[in-house]
Design a protein around this nucleic acid. Structure first.
Lengths: 367, 367
DNA sequence: AGTTAGCACTCCACGGTGGCGAGTGCTAAC
DNA sequence: GTTAGCACTCGCCACCGTGGAGTGCTAACT
């Protein structure tokens, strides 16, 4: 059976009505809609067809129709119109995003919380996976007789460090030599390359003279590199999931929250997802705990390379169009921020962040 | 009215029964208990007295008795016996705690998750408030023509850094001079002292020759110091709160989770709490969302000075005795860890962490 | 052939009812 | 002071019965 013009219209009406009200939609309600000037009976016939085709379901005989995941998929792919955000809405997002005084991590966390507040959904944001980050600079710095600080600076401007207890005496000169040798050996390599290259072995043969120092430093070097690969996940608005009617059942809510709080799992899944805006709806999600939810994620980039993810999780019955627009705009903004400022010095704007007046801060973007 | 020996016995029996079963306790049940060889009627009389004195309540006429917060308080203060953990239980905690390969932050997070798993409650752990941390060392390091890295090392071994974009040209020598001057000025001061001293103003007058560089560096210095004051809060086992019968009501559960996920608020409250083991029961908590819960917190220290907190939140009906012992042991262990290793190099044990065999890892401490 | 009115039917939601069980409070006897 | 006995209270639960919303089908209409 083909999806006639009229069927599409009806389907769209059902979907948007259901998204708005969370109530099954009946034929009478629909027939009163603008642009659907048919009797309830006619609409019922069409709905029966749509149900047969898998676009609608029926909680029980005498209830209205509810869109299926298949219907949402059609809606997202073809039916919905993605509205441009208004200037005002954009200003709210941009202002709040700029209103971060601290570092990169905090900005990401902040972005998640903005997203959650605006959408009234649970949001999350993942810092970039830094596998491809390139080592720029390695330095060892004397702190006291037995402590040095190992410091790794990467092309993306990230600085990682670790205090190292030295078991052998050292001089400023030997420290500098070791720093230079390490920089020479690893500069230009990505973090993951450096890690796979079996660093320690290489070193022992290369620079026998200071093998004692290297023995102290290298394990810490590896650990710091590993640390640099770590991805942080921030989650905000967790309690919003209680607005999903499916989770008014406590045991379901519990297992859902259990799943969401397993950051490692979530992170893995986020990494696997495609870059760009990605929507998965209901049973398109593998995880059984997610089958009543939809996920919208998008990626932002840092320095044009490293890719982080941000997104929301909510009921399949969510405002796909609006939310997609919001996330799109938010990630564009993030990417811009991290291009412009090239690294950590992203905070001159803290003084004039409220130039559009503080009255914008608390507003909410609706509909 | 006095609390006779017999009343205390009955009260204790009710409390421990109720903690175990979560069901109101009736007179018949009690009279069958070891050591309470009175008829139900006698016990009923005593219970009526206890209720009048405020130690028991009554969900409704024909239900058994339930301990009041006042009763729990009495129990915690006087009635309960704090059992020493068995060697096996201690080994489980110690082993799992040692099984952290990474840094300080991760260890704290790990401790929270251990605590949550063992107690089946929601746990949290706060990293120390570093107000009292003493600045040991400040360094500026050239990365490229326009970027330097500012690094602050503290007595407790914590290293903080920040990449700084320089708006004026600089030489290695001027960098070193600035580092030395800063170190000279701030070494020995605590982070909070340094912050209150109006650093920037001081500097402009002192070292006119490099005021351009200082103008770039000082704001970042302040921000980094502020950053050092940040306290991180980790929370684990959030979903365990659904086991509290009070929160089988969705709207209550929602507002509860809302409260718990406001990290700033929670952090503030944790900081305010006394050091050492502290138990607050039900309505002893100011927050209205916490009035059905009890909180047990304890403090651990790092380097003998900085104090962090760790604790659990659960139903007033929790196993106070067991949980107190667990938290006590855990914090002792944490304090030891951070004394021994003095700083960041806390990970040699990663290889032999499972010396007692991996079969211990999954076990749970019951009763 | 497509559309519509009419009607019987289905099923949920909701409020009331009655029996059961657990546990109490009181009284009177031990 | 302790206990047995008994009436009473209340929550829980299962069981209606009714009302409303919405459907599917059929037959009539355009």
């Amino acid at each position: 059976m083909e999806l006639s013009e009229r069927k599409l219209k009806i389907l769209q009406a059902i979907i948007s009505d259901y998204i708005r009200t969370a109530e099954p939609v009946g034929s009478r309600t629909l027939s009163k809609k603008e642009g659907l000037d048919y009797s309830p009976a006619t609409i019922r016939n069409e709905m029966a067809d749509l149900e047969e085709m898998g676009y609608l379901t029926h909680p029980h005989t005498s209830a209205g129709r509810v869109p299926s995941d298949k219907a949402y998929r059609l809606y997202v792919n073809e039916l919905m119109d993605k509205p441009e955000l208004t200037q005002n809405e954009k200003a709210i997002i941009a202002n709040r995003l700029r209103d971060t005084t601290v570092d990169f991590e905090k900005t990401i966390e902040h972005a998640a919380s903005i997203l959650s507040e605006i959408t009234n959904l649970t949001s999350f944001a993942m810092t970039p996976k830094k596998t491809e980050d390139v080592i720029k600079y390695i330095n060892l710095l004397s702190v006291d007789e037995e402590t040095v600080v190992l410091m790794i600076v990467s092309e993306s401007g990230k600085v990682s460090n670790k205090a190292v207890k030295m078991s052998v005496p050292y001089t400023e000169e030997s420290l500098e030599l070791l720093s230079k040798t390490m920089t020479y050996n690893y500069k230009g390599k990505t973090v993951s390359q450096a890690l796979t290259n079996n660093i320690i072995a290489n070193f022992e043969t290369d620079v026998v003279a200071m093998s004692g120092m290297a023995e102290d430093v290298m394990p810490n070097f590896m650990k710091t590199l590993e640390d640099m690969l770590n991805v942080n996940l921030y989650m905000e608005g967790l309690s919003n999931i209680f607005d999903i009617p499916e989770y008014s059942d406590i045991s379901k809510a519990k297992s859902f929250i259990e799943m969401l709080t397993q950051k490692d799992e979530i992170t893995k899944k986020l990494i696997e997802r495609d870059d760009g805006i990605t929507v998965t709806i209901g049973d398109e999600n593998e995880d059984s705990n997610l089958q009543d939810c939809s996920l919208i994620t998008a990626s932002y980039s840092v320095d044009g390379k490293l890719v982080g993810k941000i997104g929301v999780i909510g009921p399949t019955r969510m405002k796909y169009s609006k939310i997609t627009s919001i996330i799109e705009y938010l990630t564009e903004n993030l990417t811009d921020t991290f291009k412009l400022e090239s690294g950590e010095t992203a905070d001159e704007s803290s003084e004039d962040a409220d130039e559009n007046g503080p009255e914008n801060q608390g507003e909410e973007i609706n509909e």
